[in-house]
Design a protein around this nucleic acid. Structure first.
Lengths: 208, 208
DNA sequence: GTCTATAACCTGATAGAC
DNA sequence: GTCTATCAGGTTATAGAC
């Protein structure tokens, strides 16, 4: 019986080989970025051979494109259903966006820095009509903001919500390096912000 | 006479060779990041030979370290004198920080993404006592925030000010790719924010 | 499907002539 | 100081055995 017990290293091993490679690629690419990531690292992380990686994905870039698409959907997907909901009042939308983002980003802290950094490279392929473009058109959220503050460009408020919510994760490396805040303190700060940011945004919407 | 006229390519050529290389390195490193930047690109951009780059700076990493230090000082240097000023009232500090940052970042749009991204790499050398660490100690600004809002961690407000100010530059690549906002619109939005963010921050400080 | 061995290429760095 | 030519090492990708 003991011979059938999975070894510790095999926790993840019931995944298909393809999925093991993707899982490793997610880790290595998001940690190091495309240019600094080596296919050897990914293969080792996946517990397989380098040749096998190319057997499944043909090239580093093809593998990267799959992960990148996935990560972009993960980052932008949080907003999309909320933004376009026609029935939800503005205040509830704000609550949900902030809470969902912070919850998701606590689990994927370096997602924003990864995506926003790699997206600069024009060689990578993106859909011109990705969520963000739709977000800035006549979605329910934007219309609600326009109604609340017809005097200002609604983009200001999107930048405020996302800036307050996402920026801590982008600035995290600094705090880390400086060693001024522990992982625990950082997380509890973020949990406070889940409730505080919506309050602040509503104050801003009414300001002056 | 015409023979002494500088050619177009020579606009920058009265700089010393060392400075030409650094100027090229600033451009290439901030655009592509350390890993994706090639010393050949830098040499070409500087209009000199690859060997000469190594003659002046011994290695890619040494050259990078000089640029990185410079860029960190540029990014964090904006805050430092304002934050520690003992005489300036809180409201004026907020005005100055936001305005100075936006003015500087309009001239160096990809500075934040570059620094915040490269700073993750622990191999690079940083002073453990860099501005940020001092900012979070008992600087004048932090004490003023504590006085205004003793009920909340002052870090929240630093994250709000910096998030609202810096995030637009980090998110810029998205808007660019999506092609929803022109360079001009983006700049005019930022100029609006110079006046708006301080108003919002003050509203937040008083909220609830 | 998975491996070992190796090809093909790229990049940082140096030797040496001028 | 500046160049050309080249080396040494590393990285992606493939050929071919099992």
């Amino acid at each position: 019986m003991i011979y059938n017990m999975p070894k510790k290293k095999q926790i993840v091993s019931d995944l298909s080989t393809e999925e093991k490679i993707k899982e490793a690629a997610r880790k290595v690419f998001t940690e190091k970025g495309y240019a600094a990531a080596r296919t050897r690292d990914i293969a080792e992380e996946a517990g397989i051979n380098l040749a096998l990686l190319n057997y499944y994905f043909r090239s580093k870039e093809k593998l990267f494109d799959e992960i990148m698409l996935e990560k972009m959907q993960q980052l932008f997907g949080v907003m999309f259903p909320i933004v376009s909901d026609e029935t939800l009042p503005l205040e509830n939308k704000i609550d949900l966006i902030v809470q969902n983002y912070i919850d998701m980003l606590i689990k994927n802290p370096n997602l924003p820095l990864f995506v926003l950094n790699e997206i600069r490279n024009p060689s990578k392929t993106f859909d011109k009509n990705f969520p963000i473009s739709k977000m800035l058109k006549n979605t329910s959220l934007v219309n609600q903001i326009k109604e609340a503050r017809p005097d200002l460009n609604p983009v200001h408020f999107l930048l405020n919500i996302l800036g307050m919510t996402i920026f801590p994760f982008i600035a995290k490396p600094i705090f880390g390096h400086v060693g001024l805040i522990t992982e625990k303190e950082f997380t509890s700060l973020l949990n406070e912000r889940k409730k505080l940011i919506p309050v602040w945004i509503k104050a801003i919407l009414k300001s002056k």
